[in-house]
Amino acid sequence: CHSECLGNCSQPDDPTKCVACRNFYLDGRCVETCPPPYYHFQDWRCVNFSFCQDLHHKCKNSRRQGCHQYVIHNNKCIPECPSGYTMNSSNLLCTPCLGPCPKVCHLLEGEKTIDSVTSAQELRGCTVINGSLIINIRGGNNLAAELEANLGLIEEISGYLKIRRSYALVSLSFFRKLRLIRGETLEIGNYSFYALDNQNLRQLWDWSKHNLTITQGKLFFHYNPKLCLSEIHKMEEVSGTKGRQERNDIALKTNGDQASCENELLKFSYIRTSFDKILLRWEPYWPPDFRDLLGFMLFYKEAPYQNVTEFDGQDACGSNSWTVVDIDPPLRSNDPKSQNHPGWLMRGLKPWTQYAIFVKTLVTFSDERRTYGAKSDIIYVQTDATNPSVPLDPISVSNSSSQIILKWKPPSDPNGNITHYLVFWERQAEDSELFELDYCLKGLKLPSRTWSPPFESEDSQKHNQSEYEDSAGECCSCPKTDSQILKELEESSFRKTFEDYLHNVVFVPRKT
């Protein structure tokens, strides 16, 4: 048989008469490798580009789960590009990614509803959504962080984005990388972005840091009482949809009607710091009717980097990364020049730590249904340095008659930039024990000054392991946590139920 035959053949030295091919099969003959313009397919066939392209389009058009959109890589027609490569849609070739590779997620039936953290986790790592997304989240724990972890990498949506009755959302900033909504599939009414009845939605994105392009379709905003109209108009300008909307697409009466839409800028007039305090004062603000001013709200939190936005980490279910302080308005003076500047002394802060701070007014709604208010920009203030805590785990070892090696770990709280350490030492008198000992005694162990690591005695271990207080009263049991108490109650309830079950099964009433 021919060298490319495997198993047997019907005619000697003829690659077209093989029972099976050793390498690849091409047009009725066995070959060692697939010549151009053919590609290896499933490690035994040679196919042309049209064959591989037909497989790709067949799966793409069917949208069946589990099928493969075949691509070409290293002269092979394979189910998908290997790690580190992405497909070129024009020629199906796998090309190296520039940075992290995109991950295209194809949605069944063309859309997916995100109504819980669990459903959001199914899209973790996706960068391109081939379909439409509907966000409908009523509640949950730590929602802002969970949504950002699972949806934060999405850069492109081919269909539309719909935010509907998501009472738990305060902001859409968890879509931190969303840059493009194509609108290839539109919501009824030709809408590519749809926001309806979101009672706590206050911000779409921080438009000073976020760009969003909507290729096709219109915007729809109705019944978002805490979303200011200025935020919607800003989205029109940034996304390129200005002029597409009709009169009733953006409701003037049901958007922002319960919001404090600040239209003035508060400026800080005085800032002073110490290692654990920050004193702030800002310019006074009074609405047209000074009785509408209820006070100020001061927001602050630790910020290692200057990239904080107002609604980071917030949701309507209680999660809030900001510390909020309510401040009463100052006494009002008739003389504008003698107006008191409101302020606040922030206490209990960490030394040498940068804080993000902003302040906003708290006002009631005027009778004319106009909203007044003022808010400052987010500023960054760093507390002063102070003395560091003591170095940890000092170790001293003498390696000769004239040297001592000293080692330690950095302090747990540096409280500033540590530039150097101060080492103090003092000579001590020799131990009298060394002169009084009889060095001729056998088995004498000389006193040693070398360091030995501390260890816990058996008594201390027994005390720590004991669940009861000892007789001397030195140790006591740790208080039980809520989960331990709940577990004990469940076990007790189970024992009672099981005992009742045994009584009912074992003891049967005697027939009379």
Rank of each mutant, 00 (worst) to 15 (best):
E283P: 08
D206V: 09
T185S: 13
S396Y: 02
I405A: 10
V359Q: 00
F290D: 02
R165T: 12
N334L: 05
P329Q: 13
W322M: 03
D292C: 04
T241Y: 12
D257Y: 05
P288N: 10
Q199F: 11
N141W: 08
L362A: 15
P330R: 15
L293Y: 03
D335C: 09
W282I: 03
W282M: 05
N198T: 03
L108H: 12
C126P: 14
T118E: 08
S274N: 00
V325A: 03
L219H: 08
R369C: 07
R244F: 06
I114C: 04
N136I: 14
Y300K: 01
Q382E: 09
I404S: 05
F296S: 13
L212C: 04
L293N: 04
Q258C: 08
T127S: 11
S401R: 15
S333D: 10
K103M: 10
N190I: 13
C261L: 02
L123Y: 07
E156R: 03
K337R: 07
C126T: 01
N198H: 00
V308S: 13
L293V: 04
A195E: 00
T113S: 13
L227A: 02
R291Q: 08
G217L: 01
K253F: 07
I163T: 06
S402A: 10
L108S: 11
M297W: 15
V170K: 05
K103H: 06
K226L: 09
K253C: 08
L178V: 09
D312I: 13
N307S: 11
R281S: 12
P287L: 09
I214P: 00
L293A: 07
P342G: 15
S208Q: 13
R369G: 08
F220W: 08
S319F: 07
H341L: 11
K350P: 02
S401P: 04
I357M: 02
N248Q: 04
D393L: 15
S402Y: 12
D197S: 02
T361W: 03
S173W: 11
N263T: 09
R281L: 09
S319W: 01
P410V: 15
V238Y: 14
N130W: 03
P304Q: 06
V359F: 02
F193Y: 05
K407G: 07
P284F: 15
R179T: 12
R164C: 08
L169M: 06
V381Q: 05
Q199I: 04
F221P: 00
D289C: 14
R179S: 09
G343M: 12
K277L: 14
S319D: 14
Y305K: 01
E155F: 15
R176Y: 05
L161V: 10
E310Y: 13
Y300M: 15
L186M: 08
G189N: 07
E264C: 05
T254E: 08
E302K: 12
N150F: 11
S333R: 10
E262T: 09
V117C: 02
V381T: 09
I181V: 06
F193T: 02
Y305A: 07
L293F: 09
G243A: 13
C317G: 02
D326N: 11
G159D: 01
I378L: 10
G159P: 00
F358M: 07
A303I: 03
W286P: 12
S398T: 15
L169V: 13
L133T: 01
R347I: 08
Y191V: 08
Q339W: 08
T383N: 00
Q403H: 15
K162V: 07
L266E: 01
K226Y: 13
I134E: 15
E146Q: 11
V308K: 04
S269W: 06
V381L: 14
R164L: 14
S171K: 06
D312G: 10
V128L: 02
Q306H: 03
F290K: 03
K234Q: 13
V324H: 06
F358R: 04
D377H: 06
F174S: 12
L298W: 01
K360I: 05
R179W: 14
G373F: 14
K301Y: 02
R369Y: 07
T127E: 01
T353W: 04
I163S: 03
E368A: 05
A149P: 09
L227R: 00
I129N: 00
P351H: 05
N340T: 12
R370P: 08
V128I: 08
P225S: 06
T241H: 08
R164M: 13
C126I: 02
D393F: 15
L219T: 05
W207V: 11
G159L: 00
F268N: 00
L201E: 11
C228L: 03
L349G: 01
H106W: 07
T127A: 08
N248C: 08
W205L: 11
S158N: 06
L212V: 10
L298S: 01
Q354N: 07
T364N: 01
E237T: 14
Y194Q: 07
S166F: 11
T213Q: 14
W282H: 02
S116Y: 02
A168Y: 10
S333H: 15
T361S: 12
S119T: 09
P388V: 01
K242A: 06
S398R: 03
F299R: 15
R247E: 03
H210M: 07
G240P: 13
I379E: 03
Y160E: 02
E122S: 06
R244L: 10
S192V: 05
Y355Q: 00
T361D: 01
M346V: 08
R347F: 06
T273V: 03
Y372K: 12
R291H: 06
Q382K: 08
L227Q: 02
W207A: 05
H233A: 05
L133N: 00
L280E: 03
F193R: 00
D377T: 10
G318L: 15
S402C: 14
R244K: 13
L180Y: 09
F268Q: 00
H233K: 15
T185N: 11
N142L: 08
I214D: 01
K277Q: 03
T127W: 12
L161K: 00
E283M: 15
L294P: 14
G295Q: 08
L252H: 10
T323D: 14
L298P: 01
I154F: 01
D289P: 07
L172N: 01
L161S: 00
N399H: 11
S319P: 13
G110S: 07
E264R: 07
E122V: 08
N320F: 14
V325P: 00
P329I: 03
F299M: 06
S274H: 03
G240E: 05
E237F: 14
V325G: 03
F296Q: 14
P330M: 07
I395S: 11
G295A: 03
S260N: 02
L107I: 06
I181T: 01
Y194G: 12
K112H: 15
K234L: 05
N200V: 09
L133V: 13
S260H: 09
T273K: 14
L331Q: 10
G189F: 06
Y160T: 05
Q354V: 05
N130A: 03
S338L: 08
I129L: 12
P225R: 04
F290N: 14
K209M: 07
P394C: 11
G140A: 09
N387Y: 03
L161F: 07
T323P: 02
K162W: 11
S333E: 14
C261W: 02
P304F: 13
S333K: 14
K226D: 09
L204H: 00
N334S: 05
T185R: 08
S274M: 04
I379D: 01
A356S: 04
S260M: 11
P287E: 11
L331V: 09
